[in-house]
Amino acid sequence: MSAINRQPKKPKTTTSKNSLLVVGGVIAIASVLLFAYLMWYVAPQENMERVEVVAVTESGCIAETNDGFAVNIGECQVQPGEYTVAPIDQKLKERAALMNPIN
């Protein structure tokens, strides 16, 4: 026996740091993918369509597309019942169809 009491060296525990990095990385990747998907989902995809103006309101003209969707096309110089060509967001129509299914 010696006069110096030597304690056994503890092995370095890097597993807790590594596991935190892995969990943080997975959360970061998941949040970036979710953000990218949401940006793709809400980004407009506009096509020019011939629509019939149904009403003229303070917030713009309300028009009906050929497939029966009511959309606000903004300011217009058209009377109700007339046809005009306006940019229509196709993704808006897809979301409306998902929210209001027709049997």
Rank of each mutant, 00 (worst) to 15 (best):
residue 1 M to S: 09
residue 2 S to A: 14
residue 3 A to P: 01
residue 6 R to P: 14
residue 11 P to Y: 14
residue 11 P to T: 12
residue 12 K to E: 14
residue 13 T to L: 13
residue 15 T to Y: 15
residue 17 K to A: 15
residue 17 K to H: 02
residue 19 S to G: 13
residue 19 S to W: 10
residue 21 L to T: 09
residue 24 G to K: 03
residue 25 G to Q: 04
residue 25 G to Y: 01
residue 25 G to C: 05
residue 31 S to I: 14
residue 32 V to T: 15
residue 34 L to H: 15
residue 36 A to R: 12
residue 37 Y to D: 13
residue 38 L to D: 14
residue 39 M to C: 15
residue 40 W to D: 14
residue 41 Y to N: 12
residue 44 P to F: 00
residue 45 Q to W: 09
residue 45 Q to R: 08
residue 47 N to A: 11
residue 48 M to T: 14
residue 48 M to D: 10
residue 48 M to R: 08
residue 48 M to V: 12
residue 50 R to I: 02
residue 51 V to C: 04
residue 54 V to P: 07
residue 57 T to Y: 02
residue 57 T to M: 05
residue 58 E to K: 11
residue 58 E to P: 06
residue 58 E to Q: 06
residue 58 E to I: 00
residue 59 S to W: 07
residue 62 I to S: 03
residue 62 I to M: 07
residue 64 E to K: 12
residue 65 T to E: 00
residue 66 N to F: 03
residue 67 D to M: 01
residue 67 D to H: 03
residue 68 G to M: 03
residue 69 F to L: 01
residue 70 A to I: 05
residue 71 V to N: 07
residue 71 V to F: 11
residue 72 N to V: 05
residue 72 N to I: 07
residue 74 G to Y: 00
residue 75 E to V: 11
residue 76 C to Y: 03
residue 76 C to E: 04
residue 79 Q to T: 11
residue 79 Q to F: 10
residue 82 E to C: 00
residue 82 E to L: 08
residue 84 T to Q: 01
residue 85 V to K: 12
residue 86 A to H: 10
residue 86 A to P: 08
residue 86 A to Q: 08
residue 87 P to W: 04
residue 87 P to I: 09
residue 87 P to C: 06
residue 90 Q to A: 08
residue 91 K to R: 10
residue 92 L to Y: 02
residue 93 K to N: 02
residue 95 R to W: 10
residue 96 A to I: 11
residue 97 A to Y: 05
residue 98 L to H: 08
residue 100 N to R: 12
residue 101 P to K: 06
